[in-house]
């Protein structure tokens, strides 16, 4: 069996090469998703009727508060430290937006009526 630093690096390099051949860097995967989502957003949002641009802004407020997922992970630990406390504050702020954003959107959308 081999010993020493050289062998270790060789093994690591081999493992790394094999890894790279099978799956891309996670960042590249995320970036692909990001670019595709921009395209979806572009096509979906151009179809939004101008009359509903204000509800569009309030609902996108609620949607970007999806950062609550990150905030929950940040505050998930049982040990209370700076990370957990900041996470909890972020959970609260995002919750304001999620409830506020969806409810005010619903309130606005309920007002749009056709001629009776």
């Amino acid at each position: 069996m081999c010993e020493g630093v050289d062998c270790n690096t060789a093994l690591q390099a081999a493992a790394h090469a094999g890894h790279a051949a099978q799956t891309a860097d996670p960042f590249v995967m995320s970036f692909s998703v990001f670019v595709l989502a921009i395209f979806v957003g572009y096509h979906v949002v151009w179809n939004v009727t101008p009359a509903l641009h204000t509800p569009l802004m309030s609902v996108t407020n609620a949607i970007s508060s999806i950062v609550i997922v990150g905030a929950i992970i940040a505050s998930g630990g049982l040990e209370m430290n700076l990370a957990t406390v900041l996470g909890l504050v972020a959970v609260g702020l995002a919750a304001v937006n999620i409830f506020g954003g969806f409810m005010v959107t619903q309130r606005m959308l309920a007002m749009f009526k056709k001629r009776s």
Partner: peptide, 23 residues
Amino acid sequence: GFTLGNNMLIVAGALVGSSGAIL
């Protein structure tokens, strides 16, 4: 989303980002 490696955050963020840009 990129920091956490979470695709849902990336998708939601990109949707909102492009929506605001179009407006």
